[in-house]
């Protein structure tokens, strides 16, 4: 009987040893089998779960009245991890190992393993946490955590969309031929533009011949501009090439809506057109005047 009594604990010890060794062997085997990608997946999935799980854990252990203190380690871990992930995402397994080490450090810092936190979250969700107060508080804290995570994400999305826009503009700028510096208004001379210029020239000659004795020369010009504004809609509108300059890109990147920029550019181009008309009008007027003076047909009074 003594022998049997002695043999029973030995068997149990052996079983225990066996099970322990088996467990260790299993863990080792799993570690060996797991390649870097799986590890990375595991880390990332745990990281996602960790955000909520850890918050809930921290809720369990601390009061919800001090959310700032709760958020600190959370923000620390999530930001640190996300940074690491983005930095090391394209690198090889070596860096992945580094990441896991880092994860390990973070776990030490938190005091709970990553997947444990997940399990604890599962426990909480399963209803291990019986207090109804906890259940009521949880969504609020989750919301606050979501809020802290969403705002940088939204900012990131905004930044990325703007970056895409900037890249598109850049490609457009590259595809466009570089405009020569000499011609500031390098737009094509369309029908309406030619009409405007011709009208200004004719008006200048007519004004010098007949009108200027009685009226200031700018009055007919302003009238002509008003007429152009009315006539604008009757002319065929060619496809306006949207000019993408560095200024436009800079304004777009600084958050000004493209509609506002387009309107401003449109107004600016109209002002430029009026100025060009004025220059042509004045030039023609002076040339005509000088010609008349040289020819001696008329002397200025």
């Amino acid at each position: 009987m003594e022998q049997t009594e002695q043999s029973m604990p030995n068997v149990s010890e052996e079983k225990g040893n066996l099970s322990a060794s088996k467990r260790r062997a299993e863990i080792r085997r799993r570690k060996l089998l797991m390649n870097s990608e799986e590890r990375m997946k595991r880390i990332t999935s745990c990281n996602k779960g960790d955000a909520a799980g850890h918050a809930l854990n921290s809720e369990q252990h601390s009061e919800p009245r001090v959310p700032v203190q709760l958020d600190k380690p959370e923000s620390l871990t999530s930001s640190g991890l996300s940074k690491r992930l983005t930095v090391y995402s394209d690198e090889d397994t070596k860096t992945t190992a580094g990441l896991t080490n880092h994860q390990g450090h973070l776990d030490d810092f938190q005091g709970t393993p990553i997947c444990d936190s997940r399990n604890s979250m599962g426990d909480v969700l399963d209803g291990n946490n019986d207090s109804p107060g906890e259940l009521r508080i949880r969504p609020r804290s989750e919301m606050s955590i979501d809020g802290t995570q969403r705002s940088p994400r939204r900012g990131l999305h905004q930044y990325l969309s703007r970056f895409d826009e900037a890249m598109n503009l850049r490609t457009q700028l590259i595809n466009e031929k570089p405009a020569p510096e000499s011609s500031p208004g390098n737009e094509e001379l369309d029908a309406f533009r030619i009409f405007r210029l011709m009208g200004s020239v004719i008006l200048a000659v007519v004004v010098r011949m007949f009108v200027c004795k009685y009226l200031c020369i700018f009055a007919p010009f302003l009238t002509l501009q008003l007429a152009y504004m009315g006539l604008y809609k009757y002319f065929p509108k060619g496809e306006k090439k949207i000019k993408t300059t560095v200024l436009t890109a800079a304004l777009l990147l600084s958050g000004i809506p493209s509609e506002v920029i387009n309107r401003s550019m449109d107004t600016y181009s109209k002002m430029g057109d009026v100025f060009t008309d004025l220059c042509v009008y004045f030039f023609t007027f002076i040339i005509t005047h000088e010609m008349l003076v040289i020819l001696g047909s008329e002397t200025p009074s």
């Binding site: 011609s183 208004g185 210029l197 060009t276 042509v280 030039f283």
Partner: peptide, 16 residues
């Protein structure tokens, strides 16, 4: 004033 006007008109002419 005359320089500005001349520059504008000459640029236009050369463009045309």
């Amino acid at each position: 004033c005359w320089l500005v006007v001349c520059n504008k008109v000459v640029a236009l002419l050369l463009q045309a």
